[in-house]
Simulated scan of single mutants.
Amino acid sequence: MWLVLVCAVVAVGAFFIWSNSSTPVNADSKPTAVSSSAVVASSFQNGKQFEALDRSATEEPQVLEFFSFFCPHCYDFENVYHMSDEFKKQLPEGGKLVKYHVDFLGGELGSQLTQAWAVAMTLGVQDKVAPLIFNGIQKTQTIRNLDGIRQAFIEAGVSGEEFDSAWNSFIVKSLTAQQRKLAEDVNLRSVPSVIVNGKYMVKNDGLDAKSVEGFIQEYSQVVKYLLGQK
Rank of each mutant, 00 (worst) to 15 (best):
M1P: 10
M1A: 08
W2L: 13
W2F: 03
C7S: 12
A8E: 13
V9Y: 04
A11W: 05
G13E: 12
A14W: 06
F15G: 01
F15S: 03
P24M: 10
N26A: 00
N26R: 09
D28C: 00
V34D: 05
F44S: 08
Q49F: 07
R55G: 00
A57K: 15
E60F: 07
Q62K: 15
L64R: 15
E65A: 03
F66H: 07
F70D: 02
C71K: 11
H73G: 04
F77C: 05
F77S: 03
V80D: 03
D85V: 11
E86W: 06
E86L: 12
F87K: 10
K88P: 03
K88N: 11
K88F: 02
E93I: 06
E93W: 04
L97P: 09
V98N: 07
V98M: 09
V102I: 15
F104G: 06
L105N: 09
G106A: 05
L109R: 09
W117N: 09
L123N: 02
V125M: 14
D127I: 06
D127G: 01
K128G: 01
P131W: 05
L132E: 02
I137V: 08
I137W: 02
T142R: 13
I143F: 03
R144K: 15
G148E: 10
I149F: 04
I154W: 00
G157P: 11
V158M: 06
F163D: 00
S165C: 02
W167D: 00
W167I: 04
F170H: 11
F170P: 03
F170D: 14
I171S: 08
K173H: 04
S174W: 05
S174A: 15
T176W: 00
A177M: 15
Q179C: 01
A183L: 08
E184S: 07
V186R: 11
V186H: 06
N187M: 12
R189E: 10
S190T: 13
V191A: 07
V194A: 05
I195A: 04
V196S: 03
N197L: 13
G198Q: 14
V202Y: 07
G206K: 09
V212G: 01
G214Y: 09
I216M: 14
E218R: 11
E218V: 07
Q221M: 13
Q221R: 12
K224S: 10
L227V: 00
K230M: 03
